[in-house]
Design a protein around this nucleic acid. Structure first.
Lengths: 231, 231
DNA sequence: GCGGCTCTTTGCGCTGGCGCAAAGACGCGG
DNA sequence: CCGCGTCTTTGCGCCAGCGCAAAGAGCCGC
């Protein structure tokens, strides 16, 4: 199976590269597969590679000593994984796990850095990507310190819909196996509270959810909750 | 007053530059002063400059529509402010305010980017700095979702001590005007809870605090609380 | 050295959200 | 198509932390 050139061309990390640059990038890539549930790396691992997801979903998370999992990001096709450790030689602050059967392209960190020296655009792209993450994290910190669970859960769903949403006749499907537990780990709450809130929304016709599945029937009402405009 | 060359040399953003590069960097800098309490910029401003703090403290924060303030970072001498907007042309996600009388050096964003093209080391430094922020934000998100207020407050103080701590006969002084309100805005709690917890630590001899002032008498005990090892 | 502003403390009542326990629903694999 | 493992729901009791209100303390400027 050849590397999916079109996908690479649209990957934010490789945006703006000319065809010859793209060819040298692709020449260095190695493909691999990661079945659902498998770990790509653990937090504190020293990584020698940078990955780009080509299919599936890879979850970035941290595990506390007490065993609580916190989901920080979900990378879908076209998104990179392990960028920060590849660029800074520091161990990874997060762990990565496939939540679906996934395919990845990998570059050795040193090869990627060599590419960066030859193509400064890569450096600007990397900065833009890191910057985007910073903004998202700052938003989450603000939400966690100032907002109630219901609002945060609404925001989590809206973020997921924006990133991984799929239009269907019944509404916007979050295209990802997504348990109440996962939702809690993304919103800063517990399994129980997430379940109760989702039940309420179900009754209000805002979402329609099942086992590891959420469909947003009324994105508008969800925005209303996220922005606290209901009353 | 000439630009403080030694400080610039030690600034993470300018690390590893040779003398001639450093000279061209300094040649482009403009100094300015910002009295305590003054705003440098607001969130959503399009910034045309990048700053480095040379004296004082500059607080980066967000304000919610409800009027709650969340403090995301405090930049002291040698730390940059406005790096992300200067590099990405996006509006600033945060506001910045001097919490002490401060002095800054400023570069026009376009001048800085020109310097970056000539000195790739600047790009790597920028990436390392953004990466450091990402790590800190990820840690805070994990703490906010899994830890109790007391632990988070302990961590906040330890972080401040590491960054701005000053050894004194009575202990490590957080060298910054720091109200209970500020502490709450950094830890994700309220003025009242922060006050009560600090009172408890005072009685236990762990800290010694006054009006906008905190001294850590026993960093070790504070670590014990932050790591939840007490019992 | 006085007045006033701001910061801090603390009593009190309240509630959002936690988390156990147990029952119910779903769907995969054999 | 049956059984089992996993995910979800919900009753229930509890408490950490919130936030008002009011008093107290500290500091600055005149």
């Amino acid at each position: 199976m050849p590397p999916p050139t079109d996908l690479i061309r649209q990957t934010p990390l490789f945006r703006g590269l000319d065809d010859s640059a793209l060819r040298s990038v692709i020449a260095e890539a190695r493909g691999s597969r990661l079945p659902a549930g498998n770990i790509l790396f653990h937090q504190n691992d020293a990584l020698a590679r940078l990955w780009v997801v080509t299919a599936g979903r890879v979850q970035l998370f941290q595990l506390t000593p007490e065993g609580h999992q916190v989901i920080l990001h979900i990378a879908g096709p076209g998104q990179e994984v392990g960028l920060l450790p590849a660029l800074t030689d520091a161990p990874s602050p997060v762990s990565a796990r496939a939540v679906e059967d996934s395919s990845l392209l990998a570059w050795r960190a040193e090869d990627f850095r060599a590419l960066m020296r030859g193509h400064p655009q890569l450096g600007f792209n990397a900065i833009a990507i890191l910057g985007e993450h910073i903004r998202l994290y700052q938003d989450r910190i603000r939400e966690l310190t100032t907002e109630r669970v219901e609002r945060r859960l609404a925001r989590t769903l809206l973020r997921l819909a924006k990133q991984l949403g799929k239009r269907t006749p019944e509404g916007v499907l979050i295209d990802l196996p997504l348990s109440r537990q996962n939702l809690a780990e993304m919103s800063g709450t517990t399994l129980y509270t997430a379940s109760r809130i989702l039940r309420g929304w179900e009754d209000a016709g805002i979402v329609s959810s099942g086992r590891e599945r959420v469909v947003i029937r009324s994105p508008h009402k969800l925005v209303t909750i996220a922005e606290d405009l209901q009353r």
